[in-house]
């Protein structure tokens, strides 16, 4: 089985039924994507499949075949942070940081679909992501800032 992760094609040794999360973390060493619950409830494992956020802990690797898989490691380009990453720093939208990768990937997915989201759009778009440190107000602010900075064009 081949998977295209962050623009590069990888030959995968794992069983195609393994979760995409396990393949990313344990086989490809892409550990920015986190395990939090294993049942799609916390969003820490969020990656983009063809631009749409999915829970990699519930997604069998084979379901990602032939699709573009994007993880948190792909966002910064040539040392330049993605506008959502930059906004998370500026709004200080993190404490322990364990949910941050998933939050950022869900936010990027949201902004691709809705480049100028309302606060209600942001809250419902990120409803499946848990921040146990409770930085939700800062995250909403960060997504708002990122939308403004990207001016309707989120890559």
């Amino acid at each position: 089985m081949d998977l295209v992760v962050n623009g590069a094609r990888h030959r995968i040794q794992s069983d195609p039924d393994r979760t995409l999360l396990a393949v990313l973390r344990d086989e490809l060493d892409l550990t920015g994507t986190k395990y939090g619950c294993g049942e799609g409830q916390c969003g820490a494992c969020t990656v983009l499949l063809d631009g749409a956020p999915v829970r990699s802990c519930l997604t069998p690797a084979k379901a990602a075949q032939g699709k573009q898989i994007a993880t948190i490691e792909s966002l910064a380009q040539n040392g330049h942070l993605h506008p959502v990453q930059q906004a998370f720093i500026e709004a200080d939208a993190l404490q322990c940081g364990y949910c941050t990768s998933g939050m950022i990937m869900s936010s990027v997915g949201l902004l691709k679909k809705k480049p100028n989201p309302s606060d209600a759009d942001i809250k419902s778009g990120l409803q499946g992501n848990v921040c146990r440190c409770g930085t939700y107000p800062r995250i909403v602010q960060a997504v708002r800032m990122a939308a403004k900075a990207s001016n309707g064009r989120v890559a």
């Binding site: 892409l30 920015g32 490691e73 990453q85 720093i89 364990y98």
Partner: peptide, 16 residues
Amino acid sequence: MRKVNARSIVTGEEKY
């Protein structure tokens, strides 16, 4: 002051 390790967290590089 922003967190000293904020960049490594938002890029997924921080190792837990």
